[in-house]
Structures are given as C-alpha cells and as structure tokens.
Amino acid sequence: MQPFVTLTSVAAPLAIANINTDDIFPAPATSPIKLGRAGASRDELGKNAFAVWRWNADETPRPEFVLNQPPFDQAAILVTLDNFGCGSSREMAVWTLLGTGIRCIIAPSFGDIFYGNCCKNGLLPVRLGGEDVAALLALVDVPGGALVTVDLTAQQVTGPDDSVHRFEIEPYHRTMLLAGLDEIAATLQRADAIEHFEQDYDRRRPWVAASGPPT
C-alpha cells in the first residue's frame, strides 16, 4: 500500500449527499466503460469512476461533470457531503478513485465499509464537521480551482484561505496509512496469539468446529 503523509492539490467539489458505491463504480450493465477483461486488475479501473455521470454511452466525456473540467480533472482531493460511499461493499469503488488520481476525500461522514476500504488502500478519508466542509466547498468551487493541503501527520486540512481544520482519525488507521503498512504481515506476526485463542475457543464452543460444510 502506498503511504499517505501529506498532499497538496486542487480539490474537486461534489456537493451531493449519500453518493453510493454504485455511483462511484457502476455495475457492468450500467457503466458506459466496459472492463477490458473480467477481473481487470485494480490499476485498470480509473475510467470507471463515476462512469455514468462522467461519460456518455459512447464513452465521450460529459462536460458538465466536475472531473471532466480542468483543473478539476487533475484533482487528487475530493470534497463532498454526508455518507459518501454508502451502499455496496465493492472495493472497486476505492480502486477506481485511486485509478483516477484521487488520494483523499473530505466529507462530514462516510459509509462504514467504504471508510475501512479506503484506509486499507492508502486513500485517506477525512471527516470534517458539516460547516467546515460547506466552507471548503465554497472555496474550492471556483473557476481555475483552488489548492487544499492535507497533512496526516498533523491531522489537519489547510484551505485555500489558509484556514486550518483539524480532523480525527483512529490511531490504528493513521499509523497504517503513514507507513503504507502491509496489515496481513503485521497480523501474521501474532500467529501465536491467534493459535492460542483458537485452541481455547474450540474448547469453549466445540460445536463450531464440529459443524459446518464437509471438508
């Protein structure tokens, strides 16, 4: 996973609440962007981001969509409203955002599964209060765009007007993102604790191991 430390970029405004993962990564029959092959790798998915809003059926760009407008087409930060990433658990939603160059999303709240998926892929989800987000939206939604800086070490967002907005993030996620940590490797170092737990659990709840599908 690519570490996230600090980032300065044009921020794209997307002032819609409850954007769900079907919006972010539309399903095959819906999306104008057909995958090159079924099971395309994570890096091949950039064009699929917001595909229904972003492309016509013939894959030509829809100029009214913000990510098709310079300089927002270069944005690495997205500022949006409540409950971003609700709905389906599809991690393609995170991969497609990364694929199109988004590394940080600022919103008042996120869908729970999407939030976790972001943290495990080096895409920083920043929760700010509704008023802070509204202020940022107004500042970045200008012709020519405006720069926003996100600093994960200091846990703060600096707006185009030099306003500073502090954000909270779980220390576990922060450490993982800053280091670009391979979480599975870290967990596997606790193999003894897992083993010990499982032996005890099998004694306490013997019917679990004794049932289930045939092996």
Partner: peptide, 8 residues
C-alpha cells in the same frame, strides 16, 4: 433504489 442501480 439508487440511481442506475437496476440499469442505466
């Protein structure tokens, strides 16, 4: 009942 969920 999301936009485009059951098809475009």
């Amino acid at each position: 009942n999301f936009e485009n969920r059951q098809g475009r």
